[in-house]
Amino acid sequence: MAIRDLRPTSAGELFIGGAARRGTVDSRRLPLYAAGEIDVPFVISGQDEVISRDTLWEKHSHPTHELLWNQRGASSAAIGMRVWTITPTVGLWIPAGIPHSGWTPTGTWHRAAQFSIHAVPSISDDPVAVDITPLLGLLLGRLNTDGLTADSRAKTEAIVLDLIAPAQHELFLQIPESSLLAPIVAAVRADPAETTTLATWATRLGVSTRTLTRAFRFETGLGFSQWLATARVQHAVSMLTRGDEIDEVAACVGYHSVSAFSTAFRRIVGMSPGRFRAQ
């Protein structure tokens, strides 16, 4: 069979299910800044917004370090060919100057904080997940309120900087770039319950299972089954964050039992789906 090139051609195509290609999307364009290109007058500056329409943030970069998280809902950020999931408990630290795009569904309470590169060293040279603990969330929220004295702001900022650290678990999906794997990627991301086996895919694509296994390992660092589990869990996180029931989520992402789903979820996220949903 002839396989057309299904590799992503735009920021929107990197996000699960092709949602960013719908006609009701609010597409936002922001500048591409180099790290430190603008000298900002703050140490930490916060913003928040309740998103009223599905929103695609076109590729952009900041002169500051950025921390993204949500007060409510799950969103995504794409950096290169990695798609990260952002929730109320797991944020994403993006060092200054790194281009990224984003996808924020309707109803998400989106939050972000910018950090001056002259006052705050990056916690990592690369984008990295950050645990948004209740204390950290409260302190970041305090910085976004009016009436703080200079002394109170400085003390709050110092505690925030002491608390921010890379998370032990992070949820991102490396999207293969080769045309060989593109049909598999497109099918799984359109429907996480996709059950086509690697052997069947090999037959369809006219290659051996060994070739596909090597390709997945080379492009993503994971075997096919691990990559598939991560794609499913990433979708499950979005469903759990909006309050869907665990058994419904398990079925929607291709698991025949809640226990099998829970095992995969715990291995990737570091906690059970029940605990994650409660948080």
Rank of each mutant, 00 (worst) to 15 (best):
G137P: 00
T156Y: 07
T149K: 01
D125N: 14
I159F: 03
L148Y: 02
I164H: 05
V128L: 05
L163N: 00
L135A: 14
G147E: 13
A165K: 03
G137I: 03
L139N: 09
G137S: 05
V128D: 07
T133M: 03
V128K: 07
L143G: 11
G147K: 11
V130E: 04
D146H: 10
L140F: 09
D131K: 13
P127W: 06
I132H: 09
L143I: 00
S152P: 13
T156V: 08
S152T: 15
R153W: 06
A165D: 05
T133N: 06
L148E: 11
E157N: 06
P166R: 14
V160D: 02
V130W: 06
E157K: 01
G141V: 06
D131L: 12
G137Q: 15
I123P: 07
L136P: 15
S124W: 06
P134M: 10
D125Q: 10
N144Y: 02
R153P: 08
D162Y: 00
L136F: 15
L136H: 11
L139K: 07
V128F: 00
V128A: 06
D146Q: 04
L143P: 10
L148I: 12
L161M: 05
T145E: 04
P134I: 15
P134V: 09
I164R: 02
T149N: 01
L163V: 03
D131H: 11
A165C: 11
D126L: 12
I132C: 10
G147Q: 13
A158W: 02
G141K: 07
L140I: 08
L139V: 06
A150F: 12
I123S: 02
G137T: 03
A129D: 05
A150L: 07
S152E: 15
A158F: 00
D162F: 03
A167D: 08
T156Q: 06
I123G: 03
A165E: 14
I123M: 03
L148N: 13
L148R: 06
I159W: 05
G141Q: 13
V130A: 03
I159C: 00
A154Y: 08
E157D: 07
L139C: 09
L148A: 09
I164Q: 02
L143E: 10
A167K: 14
T156H: 00
P166T: 13
A129N: 04
L161Y: 03
I132N: 07
